[in-house]
Design a binder for these strands. Sequence first.
DNA 1: CTGTTAGCGCTTTCAA
DNA 2: TTGAAAGCGCTAACAG
Lengths: 353, 353
Amino acid sequence: MENNKKDTFRSIPTIKDVAIAAGVSLKTVSRVINNSDNVRPETREKVLAAIKAIGYQPNAIARSLRVKKTYTIGVIIADITNSFYSAIVRGIEDVAVSKNYSVLIANSDEVLKKEKLYARVFVEKQVEGMIIVPASGSQKYLENLAGHLPLVFVDRYPEGISAPVVKVENEKGAYDLTSHLLDHGYEEIAFIGYEPALTTAQERFAGFQKALQERGLKPRPELIKTGNKTVLDAYHATEEVLKQPRRPQAIFAANNFMMQGALRALNHAGLEVPRDVAVVGFDDFEMADAFRPRLTVVSQPAYTIGREAACLLFSKMENRSGGAEAVVLPTELIIRESCGCLRRKLEHELRFR
Amino acid sequence: MENNKKDTFRSIPTIKDVAIAAGVSLKTVSRVINNSDNVRPETREKVLAAIKAIGYQPNAIARSLRVKKTYTIGVIIADITNSFYSAIVRGIEDVAVSKNYSVLIANSDEVLKKEKLYARVFVEKQVEGMIIVPASGSQKYLENLAGHLPLVFVDRYPEGISAPVVKVENEKGAYDLTSHLLDHGYEEIAFIGYEPALTTAQERFAGFQKALQERGLKPRPELIKTGNKTVLDAYHATEEVLKQPRRPQAIFAANNFMMQGALRALNHAGLEVPRDVAVVGFDDFEMADAFRPRLTVVSQPAYTIGREAACLLFSKMENRSGGAEAVVLPTELIIRESCGCLRRKLEHELRFR
DNA sequence: CTGTTAGCGCTTTCAA
DNA sequence: TTGAAAGCGCTAACAG
């Protein structure tokens, strides 16, 4: 009966079946598959023919167990649905593919508990390295969990653990964006921010503040709304800010979710950008350029962040040496129209007509 | 020397190390880990303590080899960077996670050769099922490759193989969108389309055509531009269409890339939407609502597509029975402003002021 | 309730 | 150039 099973269900052929079919030993088949050692051409042909004939597919799991190499890395991001992270993932995948690696992916939704769970699963599945967008809280757990498994963090600094980070000049980007608004003469700027425990949020706020301070200004507390998690939160935060007796002249949206919320609230309030209030955002996205008015933003090289992170990871995986401890990529101020540059241009045109 | 290695590098602890540390047998440890059989509480404690003490992590690869189960599925999409696909992936992942599965992901970029390669790698890595957005060409190769591995296709029909598909009512969606344009009185409609070999493209074009035919109209050939792969292609196609002696009154963008290209070309040509030309697109996206004017689109339930596909896959994985052979999800016409409804509204307001 | 033995599919000695 | 045997880390049988 036990043997029947093999015959009736025609179980998946193994290297052994190939060996029998070709009339050679297991090792010879193995050699042909990995073309590792010298094999006599005729023998090789015989083996190849047998492989074709019985439809043999190597079992990477068995191979992995033996050679202790899975050719797989793990990636944990906040949410693949956010275009910033999906671009990062694409960057990672492209370098992974070029090294014949696969990638396991998971969404933490900024929840540390999920991050921990996925990290553990990935470690158990013997990934050879992990790239993580750390949720707020401590990543100390990875010390025991991942041992000496190569790790690279992305977008933000982790807490309680030291490992390379690939990130962006958040403070400078926010400073540039705010300064540009200030150049327009807008001094009453609302700040729509997200989770303040995240280092990116802190850096961006610092840049915002620095630009104001430099001109002897300081933020009006009632215009600072942090801790928004969703587009809807940002929508409500913007609504509140617009209800202030002295309406802000401009809005600084700290990421693309905040931007969406702000834009919708403005739209809903019947306010026109930039005529009634100017808007700028941190993080560019595909459609920002097709918008009316076109959105002024600071762009982050998301795809490059992914590539750099993956390159760093692979360099750590290949030689156990350290490599860079942080890669800080530049942001770029992309001036379009929502900051008020449209209005300026129109005024200019009207004047000279 | 060989043994030294184990000691100096403190190799990863195995179940055997735990057994020795706890003074029990391998099997007992295994039982505790999987809490499969009854184990005396004291023994269990002893084992648990040993696991903690030496920092043991189960090796899922070894386990997989033994039980022939990897708790992993493979997903091959066109491009994770496209918000439509990233939403699908999120849907898939959410159900995978709920079943304790991980997902391996790869981007085919609509290139059959890449699709084949990734499919093979995933099969070798013993995924228990695959969800694929099939590239144009034939998926017949999967018959030999995947054997009886459960397969679900998504977004479009594959060729040369029969397996369940989760897709959307493309023809009806395109029909609705076009009819709405026609209701506005626009009869000269340009069609900016993508790869015509894809079944979605065919269905959408069919819907477009059907709506015209129903009113005794037919498309002007010089306004039909298919085969655009990128946003830039769509940009150029739209430019050409706008150069026609009789400019179209409206543009139908067949997916969100086409939409972007069209919008940019319009913007660049200094044409205002919908005053100068109306625009509608197939596939909604996050920002469509924050646009000025707000974009009229047919929305596809991308996240749900992913969920449905995953549910179907798991049902195939669990019982070998067939399950549904196709799930066709409804589209929704979301009327905003870019179709001309804004103009109408304004005209109405002006008239009654 | 616990232990022994065999073996998943593959590669790596080591020997022929 | 080829083969036999051992073992990667784990679990399924089968005893005890």
